[in-house]
């Protein structure tokens, strides 16, 4: 039969063809990201920094609480950074090893950065997606609320909060994150408004998916690209904010420390012991640099506007 022989040929041809590997949007984005050299380098540096702050304490014989009594009387001379006595970054003004203090500070600063950004992203994404998806009166009420909130001098409120409820690391996460979700919500709402009219959302509505499930399953994953870019830029902002509060003496309290607290301490002693300012400052500045470059790279890779 004519048909069956043709069918067989087609089947044979189909088998001889090599499978074409499809590329997902994320793989595309990853390839674009890899072409951005500064961003890749920043990612590498940040990775090293995180490993360092997680495991760096094992490289030094000192402990972050331990006071080096032998050098305490003369920190100006004996407290200088040196490899021989194990104080790689020198001593802080009360004789503790600055290397260990810096690691300890890095942990808190990075944690505040990530947690703060996470809280902000979480609240902002959900809020924005719901406002944008439901639309109508709910949307306008939610956006008015946002307008009212963004008129607040939040930096002042956080300072008041710190002064009032004491300096608790957890509270810092929450306070900083909770005041930074406003612009996130606005961005996500804008994206959601344009996604709402897409066919796959209509299809989901047609087969009877509940609105909340649509938001979580279909809207949120699709705004994720923009969210990631913005979150990357939020992290350094959070770190800066925390450091700023700690610099004023309202952030983390002893024996904990953060880059801001260390910088504040160093600024007070910069005339006699400049290294107490320079090391924490270098860590802070390098981290901020890297996050900014990383954000630029991710924006080039993920922002649909420039595709």
């Amino acid at each position: 039969m004519l048909f069956s022989s043709k069918d067989k040929k087609v089947a044979a041809l189909a088998e001889s063809l090599e499978g074409v590997q499809g590329r997902s949007l994320w793989q595309d984005a990853w390839r674009r990201f890899l072409t951005h050299k500064a961003a890749v380098a920043s990612l590498f540096v940040l990775g090293c920094l995180m490993l360092f702050s997680a495991f760096g304490q094992h490289l030094s014989p000192w402990d972050f609480e331990q006071i080096d009594w032998s050098a305490l009387a003369n920190i100006e001379e004996k407290g200088r950074p040196s490899i021989e006595n194990g104080h790689y970054f020198g001593l802080d003004p009360v004789g503790r090893d600055l290397y260990q203090r810096t690691i300890q500070g890095s942990r808190i600063s990075l944690m505040v950065g990530f947690m703060g950004a996470f809280v902000a992203v979480f609240i902002g994404t959900i809020y924005g997606a719901i406002a944008g998806y439901i639309g109508g009166r709910v949307d306008s009420i939610m956006m008015r609320t946002l307008e009212v909130l963004s008129a607040f001098p939040f930096m002042f409120l956080v300072i008041v909060l710190m002064a009032v409820f004491g300096r608790n690391v957890l509270l810092i996460f929450v306070a900083i994150g909770a005041v930074s979700w406003l612009s996130m919500a606005r961005i996500v709402r804008g994206q959601t408004l344009s996604l709402k009219r897409k066919e796959y959302i209509e299809a989901a509505v047609a087969i009877g998916v509940k609105p909340f499930t649509i938001v979580i399953r279909h809207i949120v994953p699709n705004v994720l690209g923009v969210v990631i870019v913005y979150a990357t830029l939020l992290v350094p902002e959070m770190i800066l904010f925390e450091s700023f509060i700690s610099f004023l003496g309202l952030g983390v309290s002893e024996p904990h420390t953060s880059w801001g607290a260390l910088i504040s301490e160093g600024a007070g002693n910069m005339r006699t012991a400049p290294w107490t300012l320079i090391y924490p400052m270098a860590f802070l500045v390098v981290t901020l640099f890297c996050f900014n470059f990383l954000g630029d790279g991710l924006r080039d890779a993920l922002d649909p506007k420039d595709r």
Partner: peptide, 21 residues
């Protein structure tokens, strides 16, 4: 970019150190 990553609480003491001290 340098200006962005040098926050004023770093810049201010540095300025004092350089120009005043």
């Amino acid at each position: 970019m340098t200006g962005v990553v040098f926050p004023n609480f770093v810049l201010a003491p540095l300025l004092v150190l350089i120009f005043a001290v």
